[in-house]
């Protein structure tokens, strides 16, 4: 298993290297230049422009600029923001907690409500099942930004239950501030997870080992837990993992809508300002998070399904 993890971490490093190049190239090829954003439409003499370009190394060849940036990253120096002149690493560190809490909160909502609703729907059937099916269709169909606006107008403006914006300080206040954003963020993924869980549970219910267990006199609640839901978790784990990994990227929209100061909102601003160093750093973080979450899921999968072997180590 250790070999499997090490090999996967190696693959993740390779993925990061390739994506760093793609991200760098995409920013390079995108229209607009950083210096035109810096001067913000003012008429500036060509000499000043040239000095700015020289200062940031914007006239260097593409590959040299990429190499300069990459070697900085490898030594822990993520560069300096073009717009704020701050160190990117410390800028990121100050923004990460909000995003981390937001995505964790959303992940908990996905797991608890998505899996629970799906499992109960699959086991019970009837009206609850129909409600979950309908609800998941609606949840999946509503775009995140629209859900954000809807939740804000209902629970913050009309009912006044939750604060409208900001991230809050301290645990309780933070949770209160993050509830609506987390719900908005989790909604589509929870809908998908609920539906997949329901299907998996219904399918597992029809398995022969389930009817055999019942025919042996094993009580229904034990069969439901040990034979139906547990086995149904195999496909569900994969879906939950992919959806949680994607949350970090989806956080951008929600943070923007709720004016939270996370890295998602920061990413949107930086892209608009062509702030190379910040965009690249955030993009790398997103790729790394996606890779690590998937690795965790793969390891978890092998733990819950004894039939899974770690990548060809033994037959």
């Amino acid at each position: 298993m250790l070999r499997f993890v090490i090999r996967r971490l190696g693959a993740l490093a390779a993925t990061l290297l390739i994506s760093s190049f793609l991200i760098f190239a995409a920013m390079y090829a995108a229209p607009g230049t950083p210096e035109s954003f810096l001067v913000q439409g003012r008429t500036v003499s060509p000499e000043v422009l040239a000095s700015i370009r020289a200062q940031y190394g914007l006239d260097d060849p593409f590959l040299l600029r990429y190499w300069n940036w990459l070697s900085g990253v490898l030594t822990g120096d993520l560069g300096e923001s073009l717009t704020t002149r701050q160190d990117v690493a410390s800028l990121l560190l100050s923004r990460i907690p909000t995003t981390l809490w937001l995505t964790l909160y959303a992940a908990v909502i996905i797991v608890v409500f998505g899996v629970l609703a799906g499992a109960i729907a699959g086991l019970r059937g009837g009206a609850f099942d129909t409600a979950v099916l309908l609800g998941s269709s609606v949840g999946f169909a509503i775009p995140t930004f629209f859900a954000a606006v809807l939740l804000m107008s209902m629970f913050s403006v009309t009912l006044g239950w939750f604060p409208v914006f900001g991230a809050g300080a301290g645990f309780a206040d933070r949770m209160a501030h993050l509830t609506l954003p987390a719900v908005a963020l989790a909604l589509p993924a929870a809908a998908v997870v609920a539906r997949i869980t329901r299907t998996a549970v219904v399918e597992e219910r029809g398995a022969e080992h389930v009817s055999v267990a019942l025919a042996r006199g094993v009580p229904w609640r034990v069969v439901a837990r040990r034979h139906i839901v547990r086995n149904a978790m195999l496909p569900v784990t994969t879906i939950v993992g992919v959806n949680i990994a994607a949350l970090v990227a989806g956080a951008a929209v929600v943070e923007h809508a709720f004016t939270l100061d996370g890295i998602g909102a920061m990413l949107i601003n930086s892209v608009q300002q062509k702030d190379f160093a910040v965009v690249q750093a955030i993009a790398l973080v997103l790729v790394a998070v996606f890779g690590v979450v998937n690795l965790v899921i793969d390891v978890l999968y092998a733990v819950i399904d004894p039939r899974v072997q770690f990548g060809g180590e033994s037959a």
Binding site: H209, V212, V218, R230
Partner: peptide, 28 residues
């Protein structure tokens, strides 16, 4: 008690044999 045709389908693939045997005595 009942013995079915295909033992491979009768046992939960993710549980150990001990769990299968014990649950018939313990839980049932």
């Amino acid at each position: 008690t009942m013995i079915s045709q295909n033992p491979r389908a009768a046992l939960n693939p993710v549980l150990r044999v001990s769990q299968f045997l014990v649950e018939g005595l313990c839980d049932a």
